[in-house]
Structures are given as C-alpha cells and as structure tokens.
Design a protein around this nucleic acid. Structure first.
Length: 423
RNA sequence: GGAGAGGUGUCUGAGUGGUCGAAAGAGCACGCCUGGAAAGUGUGUAUACUUCAAAAGGGUAUCGAGGGUUCGAAUCCCUCCCUCUCCGCCA
C-alpha cells in the first residue's frame, strides 16, 4: 500500500510510474488525494469539538468536587450539542477513511525506474543467461514420462486422493524432495538466513499484510469454518512475523528462510503447459525473506538474486534471469527478477524463482518499522525470493540429466539423497 | 468441548468513574561521578493522526478488539479475540 502523504506530495510521479505498470484507473490517484483532504478537514473539525467537550467535562469534574453542583449542571447543558456533532463527524470520518482505504488498496506498488515498460512476458528483459543447454537425444523424455518410468511420482494417485495438481511422490522421487529441501535450507543458513518453521494457514490480517488480500483472494484456498487461508507461499507467514513491529536499526537486515508447502488454486490454468510438475496446487518451496533499511534494499535484492543464481549454478542447471516488465510484475513489487531454468526435453524455460523488492509497500500495510538514526520510526523495506521452488527444479533435473543409464543426481545433492543415480 | 481466572507502556506491576497516556520498580539512552568499569546520581524513555513554513508547542485517539452507558471510562455493561489453570478429548 502506498503512503497517502507520498501520493499527495508526488502526484505527477505516481501517475507516471503507475503508467509503467499499465494501471487502468489513474483517476483513483486524484480521488485519493481529494478524499485525504476531506479526511484531514473532518478530523480537524472533530478534534476541535472533542477538545471543547473534554475541557467541559474536566471543568464539570472540578465543579463537582468543589461542591458547586448547580454550575456543573448548567455546563452539562452544552454537552449534548457537542456529543451530537462528534457523533456525526466521527461517522463521516469513518466513512471517508473507509472509502480512502478501499481506493488505496487498489493502487499497486510503483515500479522501480529500471523496470521496462511492457504488457506481457514477451516484454520482460533478459538480464543474463548462464550454463549450457544439454543436447538430448531425439527420444528424450519429458519429466512426467521419466517420473512414470522410474516410479518417482504418481499423478493419478494424487487425483484419487485429492484431485489434479496434488501429486504423490514415491521412492527416490520422495527422497529427492527431501534432499532438495534440506540442501536449500542449508545453503540459506550458510548465507546468513536463520531458519523458521511457520504455520501453513494464516488469518486475514496476515493475508492483507503481504498484499495477497484483497487483491488475490481467489488464488488462495480458504478454510471458511475458521476463517483461515492456506498459504500460497512462505512469504506470507514469515513476513507477517514482523507485522506491527518496530525494529532497532541495529536489527537490520533481518534474514529468514523456511520451507513450507505452498497451496495455490491456480484457477483457470489448463493445457499442455501445466502438465506434470509444471503447475501444481500444492508444492514445496524454500523461501528467503529479508527486512532491510530502505537505503539498502536494492543492494539486498542483488544479493538475493545472486544467492538464487548460485543455487542453480551448483545444481548445474542452465538458467536465465529476467527483469520483469511493468505488465508482468506482481501487484506489490517494485522490482522483480524471475529465474528460469531450461527444461531440455520440453524445450522451454520454466520459472523456478521470483525475487522481489517490495520497498515499503508491504511494510506500510504491516506497520513494519524501525527506529532510524534520528530516533524516529520509519517504514522498513521487505524483500523475498524463492530459493527455490521444487517441482520445476525436479522437472528440469530429471529431463536435463537423463542418460541411457538413468538420471544422474547433481554432485552437491548426493550427500543429501545418498544415491547418485535414479535408475 | 466444560468450569474458573485474567489481558495495562520494552518488562514486572499499581490503578474499580474525573486531577490517568497512566504510580512504582526494572530495563534502555544520554549526562555527571571514575584512570576505566561497577555502584551511585541526574535527565529522558509509547504509537498514530492532525495543526504549524519548519522547529518548539498545541489538539485528538489509543490501557486485547469493537460497540454501549455517562457531562466524563483503563475502571461499569454487551459482543468478540487471546492467554493461563483445572477437567474432558487427542497426535
């Protein structure tokens, strides 16, 4: 959520930046500024009437104590009017604030100046490409066929138990999952992220804090009986650990990592591109999260991106890094890098990580602040990234590392899998 | 799930209708003291909104959340949330 004071002081710039994100309702900006003016006016009026009423109440108290009952009674006569006024004004204020809030949450974050204009994934900017795309023989198999051939993943069984998009991992497939999770967590800890294990369901306030709500309501599974949402990413519970928190400047940066399953409804996605592990309703992911000083967040974004690239490199996967264009970016992000691996049998890039700087967009909702050099509270910046999401890594590993003798496990994973081949 | 107790500032904790944004202590910050430290001592120490050109200052709101009673609510009433204890159930 953008800060109203910022919008007020930087109207032109806000409009210009929103245009980069192809924001469809620029009129909202002026509506917000006007509502804010009305809000302040109403608040000032209400405050001054309250001040009068408070003063009178104090005086009545003093008179009562002094035993001057009649004078006190005569003062009471005025209070009814004030009470009425306060009532009216506070109702007005509440209505204005409500409307303001409703409009404010519709504004996405402003993109960073380096974000390219554009509408679709085709407009994303390729920042770099690394690694060698393996040349597979003509009869190379896509991962869903490899998963069946080596008895690693049973998609049909998942359909029986739950439904499409909830695979059952078996044998070395299940072990590979565990190995990847542990490997990613260990690498995170090496990079200074302290591990947390967090709830998989969150309340509405948490969903709002990281801006899944109200924007992406339909993308989350909702448990109505208890009003809880299944997390679409560990970003939500981990970042919300710092909701309503004022950190010391010395506490920054805060670095956490954690593994969770992620649940996504993925309403409306079907077809060849969602086959196998390409798109699931439940998948495992290790997430890295940082809370930083506003001056450091872009530096941090680069570090986080490096961390993710390092993982892909160590796994020996060819990858590329994209700087997302305005149209493809998430609602709350100011700058996002997507990391994609080359899936050699499908002959396409698969997104395996997304690293974003939210600047103060989330922290404004979270009321996540720190005490700055001047001793004043200031919104911190939040960042997060996948490091990494498992299914597409598994898909790429299986496809790219297939040989006549089976699937070769990357060296760095062998201490975790305790087998070198799937065959 | 049943019964009871309770939720006050960074923490402990006082406060049952007015002088309470809130005693006291601890902690923390800065100063004095000291060769340095401890002890001692002094001062300060919530957040948000708003007013003001800015600073200083002022106003309003907030004692789990929301509503109500009252001229006036941390204090009384209602609803909800949470914590603790006992019982029940249970991985």
């Amino acid at each position: 959520m953008l800060q109203v004071s910022y919008i007020r002081d930087n109207r032109e710039q806000v409009l210009e930046r929103l245009a980069v994100k192809n924001f469809k309702q620029p009129d909202l900006v002026d509506e917000i500024i006007q509502l804010d003016e009305r809000r302040r006016l109403t608040q000032t009026q209400m405050d001054s009437v309250s001040a009068q009423a408070n003063a009178a109440a104090r005086q009545i108290g003093e008179l009562m104590r002094a035993g001057k009952k009649e004078e006190a009674e005569s003062l009471k006569a005025n209070t009814g009017t004030w009470k009425g006024e306060i009532q009216t004004l506070s109702e007005q204020l509440a209505a204005i604030e409500d409307e303001l809030q409703q409009k404010l949450v519709l504004l996405p974050n402003l993109p960073h100046s380096s974000v390219p204009k554009g509408l679709t994934p085709e407009d994303n900017e390729v920042v770099l490409e690394n690694g060698i795309k393996p040349a597979l023989p003509e009869n190379a198999l896509p991962h869903w066929e490899l998963a069946a051939k080596y008895n690693l993943i049973d998609f049909e069984l998942g359909v029986k138990i739950t439904g499409a998009g909830f695979p059952v991992y078996k044998n070395k497939g299940a072990k590979l999952q565990r190995a990847l999770i542990n490997y990613f967590i260990d690498e995170g800890e090496k990079a200074g992220y302290s591990e947390v294990s967090v709830p998989l369901m969150v309340n509405e306030a948490s969903g709002f804090g990281t801006s899944q709500l109200p924007d992406k309501e339909g993308q989350m599974y909702f448990v109505g009986i208890d009003n809880l949402y299944l997390i679409p990413t560990a970003e939500v519970p981990i970042t919300n650990m710092y909701r309503d928190v004022i950190l010391k400047a010395a506490d920054l940066p805060v670095k956490n990592c954690g593994h969770t399953p992620c649940f996504r409804r993925e309403a409306g996605s079907y077809g060849a591109h969602v086959r196998g592990l390409n798109r699931l309703h439940q998948f495992d992911k290790v997430e890295i999260v940082q809370v930083t000083h506003p001056d450091k967040s872009y530096e941090t974004l680069e570090q986080m991106s490096q961390h993710v690239r390092g993982l892909l490199q160590k796994l020996g996967l060819p990858y590329r890094v994209l700087r997302l264009c305005g149209g493809d970016m998430g609602f709350g992000s100011a700058l996002t890098y997507d990391m994609e691996t080359w899936s050699a049998a499908q002959k396409r890039w698969l997104e395996v990580s997304s690293v974003s700087n939210f600047e103060s967009f989330q922290s404004n909702r979270l009321k996540l602040r720190f005490r700055n050099e001047e001793g004043k509270t200031q919104l911190a910046h939040t960042l997060n990234g996948s490091a990494l999401a498992l299914p597409r890594i598994v898909a790429t590993l299986l496809e790219n590392n297939q040989t006549e003798n089976g699937i070769k496990i990357p060296e760095v994973l062998v201490p975790y899998t305790r087998f070198e081949w799937i065959n």
